[in-house]
Design a protein around this nucleic acid. Sequence first.
RNA 1: GGCGGCAUAGCCAAGAGGCUAAGGCAGCGGUCUGCAAAACCGUUAUUCACCGGUUCGAAUCCGGUUGCCGCCUCCA
Length: 478
Amino acid sequence: MTLRLYNTATRTKEDFIPLQEGKVGIYVCGVTVYDYCHIGHARSAIVFDVLVRHLRAKGYDVTYVRNFTDVDDKIIERAKLTGKDTGTLAREFIHAFYEDMGALGILKADVEPRATEHIDGMIEMIAALLERGHAYVSGTDVYFSVESYKGYGQLSGRKLEDMKAGSRIAVDEHKRHPMDFVLWKAAKPGEPRWDSPWGPGRPGWHLECSVMSNCYLGPTFDIHGGGRDLLFPHHENERAQSVCANGGEFARYWVHNGFVTVESEKMSKSLGNFLTIRDALKEYLPEVLRLFLLSKHYRGPLDFSKSDVQSLQAGLVRIYRTFQRMDELFGSSPGVSDADSGSPFLDRFVEMMDEDLNTGGAIGLIFEKVREMNRVMDAAEGGLDQETRVALEKDRQQILEAGRTLGLFRERPADFFARLADLSPRIDPHEIENLIEQRRVARSQKNWAAADAIRDRLKGMGIVLEDGPRGTTWRLDV
RNA sequence: GGCGGCAUAGCCAAGAGGCUAAGGCAGCGGUCUGCAAAACCGUUAUUCACCGGUUCGAAUCCGGUUGCCGCCUCCA
């Protein structure tokens, strides 16, 4: 089966055929490390994490490159504000990035280069662009000339003439064309600087991705990813530089993820709805966020609303409850040889994922499977025969397999529910156990009124009781 | 002003020419239970923003209308 990917460059879904059979090179624009990552960064990271996992599950040998932008105007500005030097600031937020993304189960990329490690390569690329007539020195800076590249605008689907007419482009006397962009920027006093043939300064933002992708993946590679907003100007500029300097095709498939809004509003610091990953993790479990962010197709916009996240949480709870029920029924893992191939469920799952990463549809499949498993367990009230046990375990293994691609179901059910309970710190297990014991006594005397009063009291505390054959258990009402 | 996207039940969301329009959440009825909870069963869109067109056949393709949204400036 062939993966089909929507290619922003052609605006159509295409069969994914890698440059070299069996191998995939993918470059994803990472973050600028001057602040904590927000839920939008999380979506992007998860989308490409899932893309890479899916490619690997399909047997591809993937080289995944994701950069850190650790020199940039915003970092310099933030460093000034906090009195730190830019290197320290960048290191701190790279550390925070790993903490946040690690919590969300996002795998590390194979190569995670930092812009400041590739200054030499950037200087070389600027020299090459100057030599080929695609760049010019103006004052203390070096600019890329967009008019020197006839393909400029092709990727994002715009024409230079249209952009010239746009009123939002600031006129800059140093530029030959308003859309020309800086390749090398002279350092002002106190700013980080590197020596170059054009004087001390720092590279322009777009340059690093051109240099690093070329360094690790070559002048032509398979997939380039990033947020929708990076399409223009960043990706357009990146492509222009790379094609002009290296002569390759640059990226063959462009994959862009849609934006996250919060309660229907775009995240912005002025609105105060800037939701960081670490804040979101105070309220929701990592897998709840992950499931939520994957519940909708990656290309569309996604609104992060409390009620929608909670409805996905309720669904995830049901899935884990099913796993827990199996554990109770026959221990944590009876061990099933996964040798037997031929799984209609996994075939359908892969088929869904192959269709431009239809994670929403794939999740639907998982829920159907979960219902089927519960049905089987309901039916086998008296006890499970060996055949049924094996079938159930096989089902579980298949869901876990699908979960490995989505980065879900990594927890043991007991841990999942414990962590869920930990998010509500107000509860006192001793008090609850005590009340349950009182209720047990009342129930044994068939004093239903007293028993129900206790249950109502716990209900008011957000605790739900479940009376089972082996006594009463409690859980948080979710 | 330029370019692009989206509109499917109470909410979220798959489906991209033809089997009864996935799935989740919420609701309602039922099985189970002392009563509940959980789980399961049933139920909730004769219809996919609106109007035309193409077709034997359209939620899916084409044109138009309306309404949201994004990018065009640093941004995942």
